[in-house]
Design a protein around this nucleic acid. Structure first.
Lengths: 262, 262
DNA sequence: CGCCGGTTTGAGTCCATTCAAGAGGAGTGG
DNA sequence: CCACTCCTCTTGAATGGACTCAAACCGGCG
């Protein structure tokens, strides 16, 4: 199920790596030369099912992955088997810069649905960051935004009760999908079942179920199987204390089209 | 209380920025040229008290800070005033790469004790990352390790009861202090009071108090004011499910003294 | 049509919280 | 040298939000 492409297609729109450019340009503008360099990265396409692992906690890592289609999660496990989902990713996200740069995975990555990944050798990314530092900065920035999301989750888990915590997650997911052009914040496909949502919010599935019911009874959301419609975005935002600033969607503060010094 | 140094002292050992080199070299080796470039960074020394803020959530940021002495925390607040401490930092840590690169702070940074910071203009760091990508990579790596710690905290908060959660934090702190040469893991100054420890673990100070008592009664730790002695490291590690792998102290996987491609 | 993963609901329990009061120490001023 | 204050730590009792255990329900599918 793996296919090799040593050189990306010349038609940039056709290359899966165009998604990576779009993601990086959320943070920083890239020059034409830089875009070409991204498209020229070597990669391998892989399709995976939810029961498989892209990377397992503790393994040595050699590749980063761009999520081409579907959804994926980052997770860690406690010794008693308890699972913590500490990140959810969607089409266009670069899912494994964290693990791969660090060399040894400190968490596992698993598809949540059927998903396609473009695996990019870490060394090629490092080399690119050396050669075109502007791309390195953009990737750095991308991982910093991931960090910001972790911090917000820590706040949410420690200081918000179940109902707002779930409301917050629904808001975040909608805004991120919208930012990547995958739908609109007020109505989208929600890829997690209640068990998974429980592991992502630090609750139990039973309590997630009851909390979702509360949100629905208050008229904030409407649920159908794996689909969420936000009936009252403003109220959901208020309930979840959601403020999208932490997603840093405004882009980076330093000049967008700066190329490497000299 | 601010003093300007446009050019670092020629005696590298005297410069506060030598701490930054030591921190970066935990992750990647630097060449002599690169070390000199770090030492040549412009900076401003500032001394602060615990009631002050280095950066406030929501502010635009223009500087990163190297912690020269004392301790500092990252924190966020919920709307009801509840506080979440999402990071604790010590002498030698680069405390504000996250906020400063992102341009707008998504969390506040505050000293925990009397502390001295070297404030470095963000633009100088960016410029350095462009000019000497190897340093950029080392700083990137540093922020990735912060990210790994966030993930471990998320696991701990969501899936470990109070006693192991606190045991874990005590272990982490000891190992990090030791890695930076600030003491030994089994006996060190612990800068947080119980309120702060509560906000860092997502508990209440009352429950922190009772949990510390449990650890003490089991013979794992001995407490005196602001000082912790780990009486039984192995047992504390087991209780806290602590495995230092997530701190990535082994350094980076790619060749240490590589300079820019070309 | 019967299995199966996921959802829903109920009842009882428990870990952590809240509220409240007291104890211990360090620093200050008379 | 002794109040006096402030801050932090400590302890008790009652409460409650989320959990556990368990059963029933539901829709899709082989």
């Amino acid at each position: 199920m793996e296919m090799n492409f040593q050189v990306a297609s010349l038609k940039s729109e056709k290359s899966p790596l165009a998604l990576m450019i779009r993601k990086l340009e959320l943070w920083k503008g890239l020059s034409v030369e830089e875009e070409a360099a991204v498209l020229a990265l070597p990669y391998t396409l892989t399709e995976m099912t939810p029961s498989q692992y892209l990377v397992r906690d503790g393994e040595k890592t050699t590749h980063s992955c761009l999520l081409i289609s579907g959804f994926a999660i980052r997770q860690k496990r406690a010794l008693d088997g308890g699972r913590s989902i500490c990140g959810v990713h969607m089409r266009g996200d670069i899912v494994d810069l964290q693990n791969s740069l660090l060399g040894r995975a400190d968490h596992s990555v698993q598809p949540l649905t059927m998903a396609t990944f473009a695996k990019i050798p870490r060394d090629a990314l490092i080399e690119l960051a050396y050669r075109l530092p502007n791309i390195g900065l953009a990737m750095w920035y991308d991982t910093l935004v991931d960090g910001s999301i972790f911090r917000e989750w820590i706040l949410s888990i420690t200081r918000r009760p179940a109902v707002p915590r779930i409301a917050h997650m629904i808001c975040e997911f909608g805004v991120r999908l919208e930012a990547l052009g995958l739908g609109e914040r007020s109505s989208y496909e929600f890829p997690m079942n209640q068990d998974q949502l429980a592991d992502a919010t630090g609750l139990t599935s039973v309590h997630v179920n009851r909390s979702l019911r509360v949100l629905e009874e208050r008229g904030l959301i409407v649920r159908t199987a794996r689909y969420i419609v936000v009936a009252d975005w403003a109220a959901l935002e208020t309930t979840g204390e959601f403020d999208e600033a932490y997603l840093h969607l405004g882009g980076s503060p330093f000049s967008p089209h700066r190329t490497s010094a000299q």
